[in-house]
Amino acid sequence: MRLEPIPSRSLVRTFGWPAGAVLATVVFASLLVLTAGASPFNVFALVAKGAAGSRFALFETLTRATPLIFTGLAVAVAFRARLWNIGAEGQLYVGAVVTVVLGTGALPLPAAILIPLVMLAVAAAGALLLLGPATLKTRFGVDEVVTTLLLNFIVILFVSMLLEGVLKDPMGLGWPQSERVVAEAQLPRLARGMRLHFGFVLALAAALATWVVMKKTAFGYEMRAVGHNAEAARFAGIPVNRVLMKTALLSGGLAALAGFSEVAGLKGNLTLDLSPGFGYSGIVVAMLAMLNPLGVVAAAIFVAGIFVGADAMSRTAAVPSYIADVLVATALLTMVTAIMLTRYRVRWR
């Protein structure tokens, strides 16, 4: 079996395959729903309604999409340079820790100064966390997939230690949770009675900024060159290792901001269930977006919508909300295959 690149793609090909991917996902999910003993049409309608059927549902979806945009961007920039950062989850938690360390009253500053300052510190902490694996990779050739992945567990256990120790809220009735961040460090809500917060705006701004970096700057060009062919990039005089280090800083910083936005915008304090795997879902989001920063926003909203919608659906229909995981995973597989098929023709023999 061989893949032949297609020089000029037809419209049918460009839209046909992705449409086929959506169809395949729906068909596959329908089979699962049928085995659970419910009507697929009913279930899909409930998922869609739960995700975007009302102003409230839509805002919930956007709220859930906010951390996914940050982690999706983090993964997208790293993967673009072929730096396989699987550690967004850990970087997210480090960002959250820094947020509560600086945001719970340590710095008596007005919001206009405190929030940017905390964000800067958060990004720096996440960047530093990824700098370790990046250094090991560029210096000694240590596989960053392994180091970043394992670092996640170290970070989460470390956070657990902090929440049982120095960061534990004395008023928390013994729960492993931190104190709440002060009002000056909190991100404002975007609408009365809704959970959607200013973090969503920050995420959109981050996506736009990342897009500008990737498309318009010399650094973005370097990242893409290194990602496509590091040897050719080195030959052309691009400092490959330095580019990888800078990419690591950007990626780690973006992922950490997801933690900041969740604590300062939504939860108010740090607990161990802050992230239901936003770091890992970020990989799905980035892949669905084909590593395009603006695509990340759309992909994050799509994935968030399925999760939020499935939660709502499982409350009324007798289908477990785990169907959301299956839907997202199937969508990823079929969509990645479809995207490949728009670019390549498969030849048997």
Partner: peptide, 15 residues
């Protein structure tokens, strides 16, 4: 080594 196959002619020429 001489070119980055999946980048455009423009991007390769300015490398």
């Amino acid at each position: 080594v001489g070119s980055i196959a999946d980048m455009s002619v423009v991007e390769n020429v300015i490398a």
